[in-house]
Design a protein around this nucleic acid. Structure first.
Lengths: 156, 156
DNA sequence: TTGTTACTTTGTAATCATTTCAGTTTTGAA
DNA sequence: TTCAAAACTGAAATGATTACAAAGTAACAA
């Protein structure tokens, strides 16, 4: 079962230590874009000797090797994503949850124009309020929470 | 001269104090996406009583009111941008410089699909190496600095 | 003008995510 | 088995950001 994770690490030029397998496996099974703390807290009970420093260094290594994505959509905490296929992210300004938002394709003509920029990674972040939070607001705070001046939709 | 800045603040429902005008004016004149520290260090000499806390709270207020943009493209520091028109950002993984990358238009069909997400802000971040850094590399480290596994271009 | 009230600014202290580092353990090749 | 390199650990340091209480300022009515 974990041999798949092991193979994945090796494929990405990461030596598969117990700790690295545990972190990578957690990310495969938890697509909630967890923070370092969440990952550490989840693994710690079953791995009492695990150090948070190791979680930090492992995530850094995995991101460097392209095995995972590092998201800065949340100003408070860096989040990690095992899905490295092209897709965008949505964060709810109410509850802070982060969702995948399916593959995004940027305008071909536009991308052509910036070929010379040597882009090796693209991040698309959407910020707004999820359905659940909107329901909880029920019009009362909604207005003040969404000032027009915040509207910056980039669709043509 | 500063009355324009003043009017801009009032337009965005921000009371124009001396400090707020100074911060906003700095952002208007410095389109380098400065960090809190850069803004504070630049203003401090001419405003010896200015507190860094004030710079923090002012930037937070301005962003909340939609007068400026808050960028999390740089993992180290939050950066601020006086230009609130739709545009994307590029950060150089070598020197850390941040450039504007002209307006980006996301695929219309795609956006239609996510109308229900109540998106009120969109951020598009590109990461790569600027020309200057590429020149300095001259092929030697270039290879190791750009592993294929990092390639995640989102253009179709 | 004076008094009152709310808002803003200031500086210090606290917080919290992240990094550094030195010592220890593990791994893997000879 | 031995040994050097790599990985892990935990404590301490760092550095950005926030909390907070006190001082200053603006608005405005009496």
């Amino acid at each position: 079962m974990l041999s798949k994770v092991k193979a994945y690490l090796i494929k990405h030029d990461v030596k598969p230590s117990i700790q690295r397998i545990a972190v990578m496996n957690y990310l495969f099974n938890n697509r909630t874009h967890p923070t370092v703390d969440e990952i550490f807290s989840a693994l710690s009970p079953n791995m009492p000797t695990l150090s948070k420093t190791t979680v930090y260094s492992t995530l850094k290594l995995l991101a460097e090797k392209g095995a995972i994505l590092q998201l800065t959509i949340d100003e408070k905490n860096v989040r990690y994503d095992a899905c490295i296929d092209p897709h965008a992210h949505f964060i709810c300004l109410g509850c802070g949850c982060v969702h995948d938002v399916a593959p995004i394709y940027l305008d071909k003509v536009h991308m052509e124009k910036y070929k010379n920029l040597n882009i090796i990674e693209t991040q698309v972040y959407y910020k707004g309020y999820c359905d659940e939070c909107l329901d909880n607001m029920e019009g009362k705070v909604k207005e003040s929470a969404e000032p027009d001046s915040h509207l910056k939709q980039l669709n043509s």
